[in-house]
Simulated scan of single mutants.
Amino acid sequence: MAHGSKKVIYAALAGNTLIAITKFAAATFTGSSAMLSEGIHSLVDTGNQGLLLYGMKRSARKADSEHPFGYGVELYFWAFVVAILIFAVGAGVSIYEGIQKLLEPHPVSDPLVNFIVLGLAFVFEAAAWVIALREFSRAKGRRSYIAAVRQSKDPTVFTVLFEDSAAMLGLLIAFAGLLAAEITGIEWFDGAASVAIGVVLGGTAILLAYETKGLLIGEAAAPELVATVERMVSADHAVTGINEMRTMHLGPHDVLMVLSLDFNDMLSAGEVEETTSDLEAAIKSRYPDVRRVFIEAQSRRRHRQEQEREARMLAENGEA
């Protein structure tokens, strides 16, 4: 998936760089607020793709003494920064520019230039969007698109997909605003389009921030993975019960798994060790994304006592 993610980001980066230059040139030539907002939008998107690539590079670093579980979560941090930039810079500047145009409307010169630029930009954006959609569709499997976004652990693909979707919608809004201003002669349509583009960007940023926040604070592995591992462990004759299983994604392809197991009391310490090693090897073989497996041997009775103790402590802290 890492290769596919980079392909999506590089495609979007190349497209947005060219589009941003073209839009700014058209905005300078015609004086259109909507076109200026679109130029800012593309510039922000270009910077965002750069940040995602930077985040991928940083997250690929090997674990060390300061970060024993690696740097995978750093990708989630930079994806969250991207969402904040879309909101603060993209949406903020677009809305500000639109309000300025509403307060002091002025005519747009040579609207044909804007229409040509918007048309070309839409083609480029659509090409990048198709690449992102194909990659996302391949990764989502049989899940619905909404479920795939909610369960996705790789923010790079759905971030680019959301950005490109917002970009195409913004282009349509800019086109509609300029066309309305040209047909009716009402100059504030251009400013209204700029405000609408800012609202679209703000909504996109909020959605991305919500999804990446969940990844940043830690999300469990897919339910299918958890269920399969539970069946694998339960089928081992040396295990009499699973007390608890906890998982967390430290990166798109880096899962931490902790198991508390109740072993057969007739087993020797050496047999428990062998079983633990065999289970760890089987889990990692079935799911390579599970990089670390920690298995704790604990009786069900003692595990329940520990859970009750933790529950009492939480209740006491809550009352305090």
Rank of each mutant, 00 (worst) to 15 (best):
S5R: 07
K7I: 15
A14Y: 04
I21K: 02
A25M: 07
G31I: 01
S33P: 10
L36P: 03
H41V: 07
T46E: 03
L52M: 09
L53W: 03
R58W: 07
S65Q: 04
E66G: 09
H67R: 10
W78T: 14
W78L: 11
V81E: 01
I86L: 15
F87V: 03
A88Q: 07
V93F: 11
I95T: 11
I99P: 10
I99D: 12
P105M: 09
P107S: 13
V108R: 09
L112R: 10
L112A: 11
I116C: 09
I116Q: 10
F122N: 09
A127E: 00
E135N: 13
S137V: 02
R138Q: 07
G141R: 05
A147N: 05
A148I: 02
D154Q: 00
V157I: 11
F162T: 15
D164R: 04
G170N: 11
A174W: 11
A181R: 11
I186F: 13
I186A: 12
I186R: 15
E187W: 07
F189I: 01
A196V: 14
G198W: 14
G198C: 07
G202W: 08
Y210G: 04
K213D: 01
G214Y: 05
E219H: 00
E219F: 00
A221Q: 03
P223S: 03
E230D: 03
R231F: 01
D236A: 12
A238C: 09
V239Q: 00
G251M: 06
L256T: 01
V258L: 15
L259D: 07
L261K: 06
L267N: 10
V272Q: 15
D278Q: 12
R286W: 08
V290E: 11
R291L: 13
R291P: 09
R291F: 13
Q298D: 13
R301C: 00
H303F: 15
Q307F: 00
A311Y: 10
